[in-house]
């Protein structure tokens, strides 16, 4: 569906996108994750034909975006990282206007606008001016506007940045609904949880380069990690930590508080063996939970970008 080959974008001496290649399959949700300044927006702007690349190729549905930009734009829908509709116009008029830009006649665009307002639960506010909408409503209407001409591919640049939790959840549900309807979706974001919840495949982008690409599972398996088990017990674990480490060579146990500990080892220790050890010591185990690395851990390990940076950006975006 989308093919990118050796895509590069340079602004004078600065390389924003550095020789990236990727493929997005039909009907999948693909997420491009990276901190601010990673090159995500530059990449999406070249894919939608807003900027010319310095080098490389982009095809969408077999159409060369660089040479046949206007043709490619008929099959794509674009949601910019800002809700960029017209403040003075009503929600309904904004949708109709966007339909007109794609050459839809009056009857077609009015019918589709009504459908979209209903689908996005905005039908009660369709006659209100865009400027009177809340941030979440603005975002939803901006997504609806990108769907007016029934695009095969939808580009979403930071779809939930700066909006409330409830609106974010609704938008995520709408994105999944669109995927079920067969739309191919390309998302750029710096929200790790968002890509983990939505995307079939993810690419990590840092300093203009794609450092890893795959499904969540593939990315998890691409890094080596220690096996960890979290235990909640009825006695202070500090008293038997040394004995445990002696019994299971290569393991380390750390007491988290008076009733819990985390056991870590390079090689996986069967849970039954751990439970037997505690039984022998007449310690009751209330809960045993295996700890897996999160996508955040994988991101940090593969990109060397601290997740705190992404979290800070998320907070900044939410405040705006």
């Amino acid at each position: 569906m989308i093919n990118i080959k050796n895509l590069t974008k340079k602004y004078d001496d600065f390389t924003a996108v550095d020789d990236i290649s990727l493929t997005v399959k039909k009907g999948e949700i693909f997420g491009l994750l990276g901190p601010n300044g990673a090159g995500k927006t530059s990449t999406i702007n070249m894919m939608i034909g807003l900027f010319f690349p310095t080098a490389g190729e982009i095809t969408i549905n077999g159409i060369d975006v660089i040479r046949q930009t206007k043709k490619a734009q008929t099959v794509i829908g674009i949601v910019a990282d800002e809700s960029n509709l017209y403040n003075e116009m009503s929600g309904f008029d904004n949708l109709c206007f966007c339909g007109a830009l794609y050459g839809m006649n009056k009857k077609q665009r009015e019918l589709k606008a009504k459908q979209l307002l209903k689908q996005f639960n905005l039908h009660n506010t369709g006659n209100k001016p865009f400027k009177a909408y809340s941030k979440g409503m603005k975002r939803k209407l901006t997504i609806a506007a990108a769907l007016i001409h029934c695009p095969e591919v939808l580009f979403l640049d930071e779809p939930t940045t700066g909006i409330d939790v409830e609106s974010s959840r609704q938008i995520r549900e709408l994105i999944l609904e669109l995927k079920n309807q067969g739309t191919t979706i390309f998302i750029t974001t710096h929200y790790i949880e968002e890509v983990q919840r939505l995307c079939d495949r993810i690419a990590f982008m840092v300093n203009g380069k794609i450092v890893a690409c795959g499904t969540v599972l593939e990315l998890m398996n691409s890094i080596s990690y220690n096996h960890s088990v979290h235990l909640t017990v009825d006695k202070n674990p500090q008293n038997f930590i040394l004995e445990f480490e002696k019994r299971f060579e290569g393991s380390s146990a750390i007491a988290k508080d008076e009733k819990s500990l985390v056991i870590t080892s390079k090689e996986k220790i069967p849970l039954l063996e751990i439970l037997n050890f505690f039984q022998e010591k007449e310690i009751e185990v209330y809960q045993a939970r295996q700890l897996h690395p999160t996508l955040e851990d994988v991101f940090v390990k593969l990109t060397a970008v601290e997740s705190a940076i992404l979290k800070k950006e998320k907070e900044k975006g939410d405040q705006q």
């Binding site: 939608i48 034909g49 807003l50 206007k70 043709k71 734009q73 008929t74 674009i78 910019a80 800002e82 960029n84 509709l85 017209y86 403040n87 966007c98 830009l101 794609y102 050459g103």
Partner: peptide, 13 residues
């Protein structure tokens, strides 16, 4: 306000 971008991205000459 970036609404001009919307016009540039429309499939019109």
């Amino acid at each position: 306000g970036r609404s001009f971008e919307r016009l540039l991205l429309a499939p019109i000459s």
